[in-house]
Design a protein around this nucleic acid. Structure first.
Lengths: 187, 187
DNA sequence: TTTATAACTAAACAATCGTTTAGTTATGGA
DNA sequence: TCCATAACTAAACGATTGTTTAGTTATAAA
């Protein structure tokens, strides 16, 4: 064997993730990643292959970070109440001091185009499906919903969540709170 | 005087707008604009100053194109019914054969960051406010809504519209129709 | 202590970015 | 008809993109 790595991959990826979250995929350059991650380009390439590799690992890291609110939702057993709370939790989660970063997944979905890396597109759609499944799980707790109710409302809520994530970058807290309240009026 | 322009600015901007709409701001290069607009870089720069100039004119062109559905909404006098129809009209409007392009304004709002050109950010927020005003105008047609009802519901609908535009690039027709129906259940 | 090799630094790669410029062509007014 | 000049073509600009590579440093195993 030979020399040891002077960085921890999970640590530098967390920094990369934060940068992608703030700046988006396109605007984030390898030069910026180098500075933010605190390691040389050579190290980035040897650990993650290329820029897309860094990005895909960042998405996995984001999922891990999101666990602080998805775990709470998963553990809740009061149906709609817990779901509504999840929407509010997301707003807090997406805040970084004064900066409104939205959601890394929806930001990326909005940014990427037809000819984007299929692996990234796949990862994004898997992510969305996971969250939708989580929403359906909590909808099932409402005994008066049958199976097709749950499916339809899960579709409604995942799109609302997608919309909330996008909108959270543009609209203010009062408007977002009002939005969430209206979403759940029709459930 | 001297030589005449061999192109019509409004015509080449429409082509630029279509390209920005399909590809986004960052991914659209001057090289691509040159090809799509069918004129040389020199002509682009002499007519519109720079890339941001082309983009801002494209936003104005988009507003013009959107008139085909905003005029219809503005002319309608049946409150919620007309508003719901506007949401469906937007889905059709944003479709280009099989390609789902979303909305040029929300696509751009999602893509641009803090340090983006202030002129562009200003143009985008003016655009959003205009649409919100239009929504409020139609909400006023419902006699049982007081002033604060109208304001609150206008906020709700503009965010829902923003969300719909984002989501329309990712979710299918059935899901989007279901989304629209749920939005208007709570109004 | 030597040695093989992984991890580092730093410079360079070709390609593309948005923008400018030098040189040519066409045209309305004199 | 000639000329001033706007509009054209095409090449180049420096900066930056993502990626690679040549050369140096450090360390685990012999």
């Amino acid at each position: 064997m030979a020399r040891k790595k002077e960085y921890i991959e999970a640590e530098v990826i967390e920094k990369a993730m934060a940068l992608f979250w703030r700046n988006g995929y396109e605007t984030t350059s390898m030069q910026m990643l180098e500075k933010e991650m605190g390691i040389n380009k050579f190290s980035i390439y040897s650990s993650f292959g290329n820029k897309d590799g860094v990005f895909i690992e960042s998405l996995k890291c984001y999922k891990q970070k999101l666990k602080q609110i998805t775990d709470k939702l998963n553990a809740s057993s009061n149906g709609i109440i817990g779901l509504r709370q999840y929407f509010y939790d997301f707003i807090e989660f997406s805040k970084d001091a004064t900066l409104r970063k939205g959601c890394l997944v929806t930001n990326s979905a909005n940014e990427l185009h037809e000819d984007a890396n299929p692996k990234i597109k796949e990862e994004l759609s898997k992510f969305t499906n996971n969250i939708r499944g989580l929403l359906a799980h909590n909808l099932q707790q409402e005994r008066h919903f049958n199976v097709s109710d749950v499916e339809e409302k899960a579709d409604y809520l995942i799109i609302s969540m997608f919309g909330l994530a996008s909108a959270s970058r543009v609209f203010n807290d009062a408007q977002l709170n009002n939005y969430i309240e209206n979403i759940f009026k029709s459930i």
